[in-house]
């Protein structure tokens, strides 16, 4: 027990030093070579989202179900005073629906949120670690790139294509309703 306590004290000291050193260091000028990612898991499989493609990360937001919900649509939720539809990212990626989703990522391109079960963390990787999809064998939709770092790897979900697909589906539905 005493060894664990000493280790925790060392960690606290290291945290304090790192935190202080972070403010002492000059601003980084190589942001172009780094990419910020959010890593998550859907049905046990690892995935990654570009931080630049999302507007915010939320947890335990109340999702209000909508009548006649479409496939993958969980309902709608309030994000910073705006209402946005919430889709199940698992269902969109071809996994079984997760219930209840804990985490939500709000897309930056459009007011649409995606819910997922497990959030792993924030990770900054070099641009060189992002490889095209052909480097791996991925059958899931909306996967264009693949992040490989050391022994780990994450399929990179391309949210703009997801939003484009949802827009196309909505357009076809609207067109169908007009024809009716």
């Amino acid at each position: 027990m005493s060894e664990a306590v000493a280790r925790l004290a060392e960690q606290a000291r290291q945290l304090r030093n790192d935190f202080d050193a972070g403010f002492a260091e000059a601003a980084r000028g190589d942001d172009a070579v780094l990419a910020d990612l959010l890593t998550l898991r859907a049905e046990g499989e690892p995935y990654a989202l570009r931080l630049a493609e999302i507007a915010g990360l939320f947890a335990d937001r109340k999702i209000t179900p909508l009548p006649g919900g479409r496939a993958g649509l969980l309902g709608c939720a309030v994000f910073r005073g705006s209402i946005a539809p919430v889709y199940d990212l698992h269902a969109l990626l071809g996994h079984a629906a997760a219930a209840p989703p804990h985490w939500l990522a709000l897309a930056a391109q459009a007011p649409v949120a995606f819910a997922f079960e497990a959030f792993e963390g924030h990770r900054s990787v070099r641009q060189g670690a992002i490889l095209p999809r052909e480097a791996g064998d991925f059958s899931r939709p909306f996967i264009r790139d693949f992040v490989s770092e050391g022994q780990e790897g994450w399929p990179l979900v391309h949210l703009p294509s997801v939003l484009a697909a949802l827009g196309e589906r909505r357009a076809r539905r609207n067109l169908g309703s007009q024809e009716d």
């Binding site: 910020d36 931080l51 630049a52 990360l57 939320f58 924030h122």
Partner: peptide
């Protein structure tokens, strides 16, 4: 966890 979320969101906002 909440701090992490706030930091991530702050990072997003700072990037924007």
């Amino acid at each position: 966890e909440q701090t992490n979320i706030l930091a991530i969101n702050a990072t997003i906002e700072a990037t924007g």
